[in-house]
Amino acid sequence: MTAIIDAQDLRKNFGDLVAVDGISFSVKKGEIFGFLGPNGAGKTTTMKMIACVSPRTSGILSVFGMDPDMQPADIKKRLGVVPQETNLDPDFTCFGNLFTYSDYFDIPSNSAHKRSDELLEFVQLQEKRNVEVEKLSGGMKRRLILARALVNNPDLLILDEPTIGLDPQARHLIWEKLKTLQAQGNTIVLTTHYLDEAARLCNRLVIMDKGKILVKGAPAELVKQYVGEEIVEVENSTEVLSCLAVHNIPHEITGDTVQIATGSSREIAKILLDSCQPKKMLTRLATLEDVFLKLTGRTLRD
């Protein structure tokens, strides 16, 4: 498989602040690659370096085999970018936004016209074609931004928190569209805070914190490797805690619950029920969220 993006010891400093601290990764053609991490982890900065809008401080970065410092226009021609902030042009309608944006990519007006209408249909906004973007809901705006990122038929789509602030319906629609795009052979790089989104979409992902990559791999493998298969949750009480200590069961206290990561929830549940008399108990599958919190801690960021 060809690497679409290849980064070696990539670094970005803003004065004394180290935003990205020597990360290495490569994104293969046709995959959905995720960047996860708490706020300030360096995800967006990494996206901006890939999108040729923020020059790197040091390290090697190649996108489509080209250097963003040397050939930004050639790279950007083949990129579609969905930024974190909504930056649609409020001076135009939905169609106008797509049509004007096509012009920046030197797309002739005939094909731009056709493509804009196709894309409005793709993101289900054809009935809002001639509506000013100011009048759209948050979900519609995000969909329109996704459509705008597709005007040039990009080979690589960069999405910075594509579903931020959306309702479940809109999120599912975006996920569905991203899956469709992947099936059409697009390579997609995305950042997200939503772990279920990452687990559902990404073929591979990295978890970043403080500018460094903590782990990389496929979501299911990461869960298995770092947490285990299942989680048993019981309430946080002195009886339960002393009981767990007696049975020598490793556990983690998180607020008013105690979490026990395990390969077999049945055995643990049986021990707990037989000897600890918990008031409430819950067994569930381990998720990416458990990995995330385990690796990045529970302290609040920002």
Binding site: D74, N87, Y101
Partner: peptide, 9 residues
Amino acid sequence: DAMIATPLS
């Protein structure tokens, strides 16, 4: 921001 995400510098 939107413009410089395209081939425009």
